[in-house]
Design a protein around this nucleic acid. Sequence first.
DNA 1: GCCGACTTGTGGTAAAATTCACAAGTGATG
DNA 2: CATCACTTGTGAATTTTACCACAAGTCGGC
Lengths: 206, 206
Amino acid sequence: MDTPGVVIQRLPLYLRCVKALQEQGKRITSSQEMAEHLGLSSAQIRKDLSHFGEFGKQGMGYDLAYLHEQLERILHLDRRWDMVLVGAGDLGHALIRSGDFVQRGFRIVAVFDADPHKIGQPLGPLVVRDVATLSSSIRELGAQIAILAVPAGAAQEVASKLAEAGIRAILNYAPVSLNLPPEVRVGHVDPLVLLQSMTYYLCPEG
Amino acid sequence: MDTPGVVIQRLPLYLRCVKALQEQGKRITSSQEMAEHLGLSSAQIRKDLSHFGEFGKQGMGYDLAYLHEQLERILHLDRRWDMVLVGAGDLGHALIRSGDFVQRGFRIVAVFDADPHKIGQPLGPLVVRDVATLSSSIRELGAQIAILAVPAGAAQEVASKLAEAGIRAILNYAPVSLNLPPEVRVGHVDPLVLLQSMTYYLCPEG
DNA sequence: GCCGACTTGTGGTAAAATTCACAAGTGATG
DNA sequence: CATCACTTGTGAATTTTACCACAAGTCGGC
């Protein structure tokens, strides 16, 4: 039984919703409450969850603490994930400085760049490494996730090297569609594409 | 005839692909070439484009310059779009400094924040305005797009105000599902959700 | 103990998206 | 001018996704 990708992509939203409700002091919820929160249908939430087991009680709804725990287990978020960052530019700096990832169990353990001026420089608690040492460093660190924050022109080449080095998931900030073996997962952060598809619906005069 | 949303979301990718091929010096392409570039099927690209007209020639493929022009027309990218930015934190600063949006015809024309210490301070070429003046400023500027870069706790409230002020598209960087009238489009930039769904497929030993 | 108000999990159904497969058209070649 | 190798655009088939609707279960109140 392989669960559809669209379902998997919604699970983190469910988890976030559960956390938000818990922060409101709630202890239980219902598929309907979550649906209103997330703008989905309650049936979809129930069906999605049913792929992984039965987490609720008829008439009662879902225990938030239990659902929280189960979602983290399913998504393998009940552990820390080490990531490597490639690209020590403005974006790379911002990603290191922001604590968003760390707070959620994702830690950047190495930074790489190709620019000789940047290599060896400190960046937060890390020192920028030479991208030429990518492969050996990754194997040494055992990282499975990489953040790609390099210019568009270099993205495909670096991504291929990451895949060769054993990286199994890439969070891609470069505005390029990566061509990689299917066993490597890619998540594409692409604000420009989002803007460009929204303007389709925007017309200067209605 | 209303075109499915998934199709619209792919058009910017096609546009990006067309630009990349043009930069390689090519003058024509085929659905198959684009498909390989983007990791899609050629039939899908042809069918998507067929929603808007016939842009290719049988046996010949697509003229890149023409397809480029048509995609920009369809997406309303043949003009400049003014945006307002709410949130003058680290992310806001980064968005202003980065020229990515401007290069593609999206310009940030005003910045807002709620922090009295930030209001009145210069930020790039702009001066941070009081978020209390959001509504009047937006109407004055005529902006239809907003970038939401505020903390999660403030996102829904600000988003509702944006919608009231006539904003019709929001690029949301806050880790919150926004609840808005359906005529307001929302694009969600959410690296953490991408990471969290990728870890599903990652198993420490397997 | 029984009723009524809820809620889950799910089989079946409807809708949506993708892919197939092919007629029709194009230009190059000899 | 006939052939060949390509390519588009598109109905039809297939696959995927979302939704409906309801049996079954739970709890609180009286």
